[in-house]
Deep mutational scan, measured.
Amino acid sequence: SLSVDNKKFWATVESSEHSFEVPIYAETLDEALELAEWQYVPAGFEVTRVRPCVAP
């Protein structure tokens, strides 16, 4: 099958004044980091952490 098993990760994104967490959907932690950097670094943010979303 061609289905992709995307998992939810939380990326911590920082600017000079703010820090916030955004959801990233990817297959692996490395891919989540790449996606977060691709989305947020060009906008002037720094991705400081990516972690798996742990269900309660």
Rank of each mutant, 00 (worst) to 15 (best):
L2K: 13
S3Q: 11
S3R: 12
S3D: 09
V4L: 10
V4H: 14
V4Y: 08
D5V: 15
D5G: 15
D5T: 14
N6H: 12
N6A: 14
N6F: 13
K7T: 07
K7M: 07
K8A: 06
K8V: 13
K8H: 11
K8L: 15
F9V: 00
F9K: 01
F9D: 01
F9L: 01
W10L: 08
W10I: 13
W10N: 01
W10K: 03
W10C: 15
W10H: 03
A11G: 02
A11W: 03
T12M: 07
T12R: 08
V13N: 01
V13Q: 00
E14M: 12
E14V: 14
S15K: 10
S15A: 06
S15H: 08
S16V: 07
S16N: 11
E17I: 09
H18R: 11
H18K: 10
S19Q: 08
S19T: 11
S19L: 06
S19C: 10
F20C: 07
F20D: 01
F20Y: 08
F20A: 03
E21N: 07
E21D: 09
V22H: 02
V22R: 02
P23W: 08
P23M: 14
I24A: 01
I24M: 03
Y25C: 06
A26C: 05
A26Y: 02
A26H: 03
E27D: 10
E27K: 15
E27A: 15
E27Y: 11
E27G: 12
E27L: 13
T28W: 03
L29R: 05
D30S: 10
D30W: 13
D30E: 14
D30K: 13
E31N: 06
E31Y: 05
A32S: 02
A32W: 02
A32I: 01
A32V: 02
L33R: 15
E34T: 10
E34L: 14
E34Y: 13
E34D: 07
L35K: 13
L35T: 05
L35N: 04
A36E: 02
A36Y: 03
A36W: 03
E37H: 09
E37Q: 12
W38T: 14
Q39R: 08
Q39S: 06
Q39P: 04
Q39C: 15
Y40D: 04
Y40C: 04
Y40R: 06
V41Y: 06
V41R: 07
V41I: 10
V41S: 11
P42E: 12
P42D: 11
P42R: 07
P42T: 10
P42K: 09
A43K: 13
A43S: 08
A43C: 15
G44V: 00
G44R: 00
G44D: 04
F45N: 03
F45H: 04
F45C: 04
E46H: 09
V47S: 02
V47P: 03
V47L: 03
V47C: 01
T48V: 12
R49C: 07
R49Y: 08
R49L: 12
V50G: 02
V50C: 00
V50Q: 01
R51F: 07
R51T: 07
P52E: 14
P52Y: 09
P52W: 08
P52R: 07
V54H: 11
V54R: 09
A55N: 11
A55D: 13
A55V: 11
P56T: 10
P56F: 09
P56Y: 08
P56R: 08
P56V: 10
P56N: 13
